[in-house]
């Protein structure tokens, strides 16, 4: 299995690691059980994403896709940010090994989940944004796998 130079670059030098105090929207997806958890915080001003930060528990691809996803949405209006797909992230990284494609799906989901949180908190609407796939599960992410 080989990572592209872009994946390794974003893994070795991840962009936008951290948290945003008073984030406009925050989303956490994945679970400890399958080894990937991504948290994305967004700062949104006048409908534009002015900052994005992430924290990820996961493999090289998980960290790289989170990093790339944040760089791709900063400066974008929310209406455009929702168009971010796992394919956009993968293309920007010049591809992922087949077993790592799910990491890019998780990055897409993390961004959508943060946007959904923003929508709920602010009572606004973003056309085309569906609720996160497994919202119920997201309420209590599988942290139980880390206890004991």
């Amino acid at each position: 299995m080989e990572y592209t130079a872009e994946v390794l670059d974003h893994f070795m030098h991840p962009r936008n690691v951290g948290d945003i105090e008073d984030a406009s929207g925050s989303g956490t997806v994945g679970n400890a059980r399958c080894g990937d958890i991504m948290k994305v915080d967004l700062k949104i001003e006048d409908g534009v994403i002015t900052d994005a930060k992430f924290k990820t528990f996961g493999c090289g691809a998980a960290i790289a896709t989170s990093s790339m996803a944040t760089t791709l949405i900063i400066g974008k209006p929310v209406g455009e940010a929702i168009k971010l797909t796992n394919k956009t992230v993968m293309d920007a990284l010049k591809g992922l090994p087949p077993v790592k494609v799910h990491c890019s799906c998780l990055a897409e989901e993390a961004v959508r989940s943060a946007l959904w949180d923003y929508v709920k908190k602010n009572g606004v609407e973003i056309e085309g944004l569906a609720p996160p796939k497994d919202e119920a599960e997201l309420e209590h992410i599988g942290l139980e796998g880390l206890e004991g």
Partner: peptide, 19 residues
């Protein structure tokens, strides 16, 4: 795969730690 090592699970490690 999505599961961590069967050996580590067999000795009772939680998934998160086995990863």
């Amino acid at each position: 795969s999505l599961d961590p090592s069967h050996v580590l699970l067999a000795i009772g490690m939680p998934h998160g730690e086995a990863h």
